[in-house]
Computed example of a mutant assay.
Amino acid sequence: MHLTMTNADANKFRFYRIEIVRGLFGDWGLVRNWGRIGSSGQLRTAWFDTESEAKDARFDLHMQKTRRGYE
């Protein structure tokens, strides 16, 4: 999932990527990558025991970002 927020008046050009990946030991990771458009940005992975937990976390994060103005 790729979200962006652009506001030229406020000089805001940001991106947010969310991806679910399977780990080596049967766990699931929620990979988040965010920053200014054109940069590599920050990267963080949160690990979960089940795929459904990771999907729930992705949905919560997606809703949080859309409330903040990401599309």
Rank of each mutant, 00 (worst) to 15 (best):
S52R: 06
D49I: 06
L43S: 15
F25C: 14
S52Q: 11
E51A: 08
D49H: 08
L30S: 00
Q42S: 15
S40W: 13
G38R: 01
Q42Y: 14
W47A: 11
F48W: 03
G41E: 00
L30V: 02
T50R: 04
T45N: 07
D27R: 09
V31Q: 12
T45V: 14
G26E: 02
E51N: 09
R44Q: 12
W34C: 06
R36P: 04
A46M: 09
R44D: 14
Q42R: 15
L24M: 13
K55N: 08
G26A: 05
W47C: 08
D49Y: 07
Q42A: 15
L30A: 02
F25M: 14
G41Q: 00
T45Y: 02
Q42K: 15
K55P: 00
K55E: 15
D49N: 13
G41L: 03
E53P: 00
S39L: 06
G35Y: 00
V31T: 07
G41W: 03
W47M: 11
D49C: 06
F48P: 04
V31Y: 07
S40T: 12
D27H: 09
S52H: 12
K55V: 06
W47Q: 10
K55W: 07
N33K: 08
G35M: 00
F25D: 14
E53C: 07
N33F: 01
I37S: 03
A54G: 00
L43F: 13
G29V: 00
G26D: 04
K55S: 09
E51M: 09
W47D: 05
G35I: 03
N33Q: 14
W34Y: 12
D49K: 12
W47V: 13
T50C: 00
K55R: 13
I37Y: 00
G35H: 05
V31D: 12
G29N: 04
W28R: 07
G38I: 01
L43D: 10
L24A: 15
E51G: 07
W34A: 03
R44V: 13
A54I: 04
G35C: 04
D27C: 05
T45K: 09
A46E: 11
Q42D: 15
